[in-house]
Amino acid sequence: MAPLKIKKGSSSHSAYNLRDPNAEVVERHTLAVVVENEPGVLARVIGLFSGRGYNIESLTVAEVDHTGHRSRITIVTVGTPHIIEQIQAQLGRIIPVHEVHDLTVEGSSVERELGLFKVAGTGEKRVEALRLADIFRANVVDSTLENFVFEITGTPEKIDAFAELMRPLGLQEVARTGVAALSRGSKTQA
């Protein structure tokens, strides 16, 4: 990595300037985007990603402040540092976007996802599924004699791991929410 020149007065004032902007390495970043909850705002954000060829690994959105009409969109994306910086700047141009935070560079954060898993099976497999669910602290939210629906929360990696284990045990259907994330400690985004 080339030595970095840190300049004041950067356009972003972000920690990006601490990293080599020209590095070709692809990084995974979690962005928190606080938007006005108005029709079409999600389409604007998604359209930006598809129109400019950026990646979306995961996207979640919900209103987080009813009185203030604010929704929070959490996007997990991958790209070179240069692309990630562009994404942040491009999101900032969208008029109903109030704030854009790159949780990956703004200090540490927690990420959680919720998954629902429908697993069918009888006998040994059924017992094993229940046992593993217990280890993963997954809850049974529906059950019949032939199947369970498990609910699990955790990091995406944890949910991936759970899915891998359930597959041979009769995994039939999966629904995942995508990542929600908050920075750790007393820092707030909105």
Partner: peptide, 17 residues
């Protein structure tokens, strides 16, 4: 005036938004 114009194509040494 547009942060997305800065460093979009060419990295600059002194960006002024």
């Amino acid at each position: 005036i547009d942060a997305s114009s800065i460093n979009k194509v060419i990295r600059v040494d002194i960006p002024i938004l």
